[in-house]
Every structure is written in structure tokens, then in C-alpha cells.
Amino acid sequence: MITFKNLVAGYGRAGDILRGIDFTAPESAITCIVGPNGAGKSTVLKACSGLLRPRGGQVLLGDEEIGGRSPAEILRRGVVQVPQHHGLFPSLTVRENVMLGAFVNRRERDRNRRRYEEIAQVFPLIAERAGDKAASLSGGQRRTVEFARALMLRPRVVLLDEPTLGLDPKACKQIADSITTLNKEGVTVLMVEQNVRFGLTLADHAVVMEGGRVLHTGAADALLADPDMGRLFFGAAPEQQETS
């Protein structure tokens, strides 16, 4: 569904963060990117959503090149990103936040309104807190609103940047449910997750990155079961540390 071909990207004057990325996130599957801090995982997502213009290589949505297009153009093609932070508009209401998800299709008023009603039924929180400022929500609730906003466009691909960051275990479970629900509706999910076990348990496919390159791709459960990969990237569990 989304294919990266020799993608090179970086910020400003600094050197390249991504130094030739090749992998495919297959249609209707959940793909999880893992790797150490600063490996370039979030940068891959940004290059995909149009927030960052690639310096080289291609980003393909199906057969169409989307690398270097504007965020609005990419959104119209059904690729939506849920960012790590700063995604919501704290001074606007929950309803305004969700409705703005359809900004690129703002002229279709009736359709957007209907879509909002549908979403408000799926996420009771939206209906309950519709008139409250987003700033008054807790971390988990903000995530939910961001998810709901992403759904306004009926996306084909959802990009998730560390969906569980700073969330308590209970909220993590809700996020996991939301991701599974998304996926069951046929949405392709490409996510970055620092909580490796969480990400890989949820995902079908795994991509391991380090230093701006892809080290490994494969089935998520196989990677999770691989003891070598485990030691390298997930860290031994603290319990093991004590006994060794």
C-alpha cells in the first residue's frame, strides 16, 4: 500500500536523517517500525504525510508517487497522520477539533456533519465532551480525540507516531482496541512505537530501523520471538538482569 524506495530525508542544514529507506507497508495490515531513539522512525512518517519533503527516493501510495506533495494533497488521498504531540488545538472545543479533521473536504458540509455524528457514536467521549476545550482533556482522552479526528476523512492509511506515549496501561489497552478496530475496517496502519512489545504484539509486520537505515523487515511475531533481536532492541527484561 505504502512503499518507500531509497528514501532520503533530513531537516534544515543538518545532515540526512534517513539514508535510503526501502520497505513496504502492505494493504490492510498493521506495520510497526521499531528502533532506538533518533533512528529516524518519526521522520519516515513525516516524509509520508507531507510534513517533510524528501531529499531523494520515492514514497508510493499504491502506484502513485506522493513524496514531496503538500499535506493537503496527501490528506485528500486518504493518508492521515496522528502525531506524537501538539496535534490537537487546545483552545478549540472537542467538536471543533474533530470537525477540523475534514478541513481538506470542508465544502462538503452535510457529509462532514453526518460523519461527525457517526464518529460521536463510536467514541462516546466525543459526544460527552463536545463543547469542552481540548485543553481540559487528559492524555488518554486527547489521544481518542486525535483518533476520532483522523477518521473524519475515512482514511485508507493511518500513520501513528507513538500512540501510547505517556499513557497509563488502561488507556494503552483502549488505544490497542481502537487500532484493531481501524484495521478491521480495512485501514492500513503504519505506526512507530517505542513500547516495542506493545507495538509488535499488535502488528502484522515489523520494520527495524537504526541510524536512518532499515536493518530488518519481517513478520512481527517472528521478530518478537527472535532471541537475538530481542537482546539487541527490546532490552532484556529487568528481571533477567537481576538473575544474570
Binding site: T164, D168, P169, K170, C172, K173, A176, N195, V196, R197, F198, G199, T201, L202, L224, A225, P227, G230, R231, F234, A236, A237, E239, Q240
Partner: peptide, 22 residues
């Protein structure tokens, strides 16, 4: 009830020693 959500360990935050999966 308040924090962990339920009694079955979650995917990433299972309270049981999780090294077993590795």
C-alpha cells in the same frame, strides 16, 4: 480496576515478568 484496566495482562505492560516472551 483503576489503573491496569483488567486482570489479563496487557500486550506491552503485563505485570508478569515479560522477559519470557523474548
Amino acid at each position: 480496576d483503576a489503573y491496569l484496566g483488567d486482570h489479563t495482562p496487557g500486550p506491552g505492560n503485563d505485570p508478569a515478568p515479560s522477559g519470557a516472551t523474548a
